[in-house]
Design a protein around this nucleic acid. Sequence first.
DNA 1: GCAAGGTC
Length: 826
Amino acid sequence: MELIITEKDNAARRIADILSGGTYDSSRENGVNVYEWGGKRCVGLSGHVVGVDFPPEYSDWRDVEPVELIDASVEKTPTKENIVATLRLLARRAERVTIATDYDREGELIGKEAYDIVRDVDEDVPIRRVRFSSITENEVQNAFDEPDDLDFDLAAAGEARQIIDLIWGAALTRFLSLSAGQLGEDFISVGRVQSPTLKLIVDREREIEAFDPEDYWELFADLAKDDTTFEAQYFYRDEDGNEAERVWEEAIADEVYETLAERDTATVVDVNRRTRTDTPPTPFNTTQFIRAASALGYSAKRAMSIAEDLYTAGYITYPRTDNTVYPDDLDPEELLDDFVGHSTLGESAESLLEADEITPTEGDEETTDHPPIHPTGEIPSRGDISDDEWEIFELVVRRFFATVADAAVWEHLKVVAEVDDYRLKANGKRLVEPGYHDVYPYFSTSENYVPDVDEGEQLALSDVELEEKQTQPPRRYGQSRLIETMEDLGIGTKSTRHDILEKLYDRGYVEGDPPRPTRLAMAVVEAAEDYADRVVSEEMTAQLEADMDAIASGEATLDDVTDESREMLEEIFANLAESRDEIGDQLRKSLKDDKRLGPCPECGEDLLVRRSRHGSYFVGCDGYPDCEFTLPLPSTGKPLIMEETCDEHDLHHVKMLAGRQTFVHGCPLCKAEDAGEGPIIGDCPECGDEHGGELAIKTLQSGSRLVGCTRYPDCEYSLPLPRRGEIEVTDEYCDEHDLPELVVHSGDEPWELGCPICNYQEFQARESESGSDLESLDGIGAKTVEKLADAGIEDLDDLTAADPDAVAEDVDGVSADRVRSWQAKA
DNA sequence: GCAAGGTC
């Protein structure tokens, strides 16, 4: 029996399909899929199935000096026990083993890990290696026809990286965490990739903080030929002879303004017309995909998560790739054919197929691991996937379309007109050949119309405007810009860059979007710059890459490289040791700065965001226990201190981070003053008789309102009230509940809410009525019931009477077939 | 309870 091992289950299944001609059987062993046919078995790993770590006696942070980790041994232990067990089981029965992991350095290392597991149970079984760049019939057959051996040097290069990353990361992370007394889940982390990335963000923030704005002026005027008016801007030549629009002296700006404002014509002195070819974009690698998705409003994490789902479902190719050149065996015409006749994508595909010759664009990077991201030709129906998934799928499809489309052509027209010695310019542009923009509508194609004019022509001049402006600080990096910059600097990989950003959020180093560094992040980068510059510099990765190349080519050994790295870290620790207290003080101070809201209204010390023993957040005074002033915070989410401050109390605003339910809470002191109890409207039906509780109209911290008992939290009786509008308490009373009728004033017409108890009871009755009917059907959930109700389908009668196609059109995520199946059941 | 790299 031959055992074939791949890097992931998906690849195992596709290889089984190709080699068996679709005749394989599949079974499960320890929860792992095994594909079997004609004397062969194929199993997929899940990336690395073993990991590196120190021996257990090093695991207590307090008992082990961080410096001791540098010379500690590094062991490999299984991290995916079930897969390792399955591999051992299958290896015992194998007469030959073929390693078919991904064709890149990490794939070689993963292959070596599988090799070691196999060798452990069988010293003699022959083990060979096959390499292919994409899982297509041709490539896979060729690879299996010409098998090779595992490249142990290349795998060793990967191992060196693992060891160096672990030692540097663990030793420095433990050192900083211990120095600041931050143990447990709030440890302070450092690493070869995360720290240089954090430094990028921190450096930009330093520029922003140090920025000194400068005033300048810009002048605009309208020019007109016949009835056509267009905007022109004043410019001059600076000392280097370049065109400049910004005027740095007010007196000069005024002088130009007065001259222009006095005159009513300008003379055309230069007309410049040129055409520009706008070449179509290159195929998607991971970074460019994230960038394009981010322009549509997706975070890096969300974009990758959707791409992974689309990949697993078979609609797009593997989303983690550096490659920007399509492989030879991708036939663009064949792939376009798959879209012909499709309701929304078909037209573009058909127009592209009309071309005489189809030549895809190519990027600069051609790698051996995976093809660029492109559609597989399998098209999901709209009901099968969510709107977001469809939007990302369409992006990938259209990007593929764009790479086989024609270039676009723009015509640029620049007109320069003169008034005395002053010059005005207007830049027009027109898209004469839309080219790829027809099939890829994600780039701007906005035009600016400037009419045809001739040199010497007089144009009417009007509406001269002088605008005072200020230079702006550089902008923070957005998530996709950061990922692009990481790629440019060579740090991280296509699979990890977006994870590294997530890590910075998780560690409390950055907040918001675009990511803004916390004081802690600034202090960590500063400490690293002072004592371990290497770990915040992209140089460390560059050197490591060079060392890994040396190992792979046999010029150096794993021990040469790791020993040298250990020595460097020893030197760093020699300097760190004596500054431990100083570093700890700085870190602790910055941790406190991140919690600081502003002055306490009672004692003037700082108010801090704190966490109670039960885990809830509140605002407390730094002067505690002398000052016991506190303010509440909402119970949902994790508080984030915003840059914005309250004019009245000088306190920073607070935002509550709770995923999709994130909201701005504002100034906690204002909120506390606004909140509280409104008018009392009657006795509490639950505890009024026994304890004298009364019902009051209350406004909560979050801004929502309710009728609640004055004995809260001892009595939790409450009734809901609408969010919007002012509530009027009338003189009329409900006979049954002895409570006043309420009127809500919002919008144009006030509406009668009536007695709050009756109102609530009616609401509940409506809920149960509408819910019971439709929700009784199998395969229909509460969310769908809501969506159907929005489309006017409130009960089973409505559903059976409805036209399935019309329903599918109106309701997101519901296909006509699904509606028919409900109708059959109803 | 440390890193970064695979994969889900």
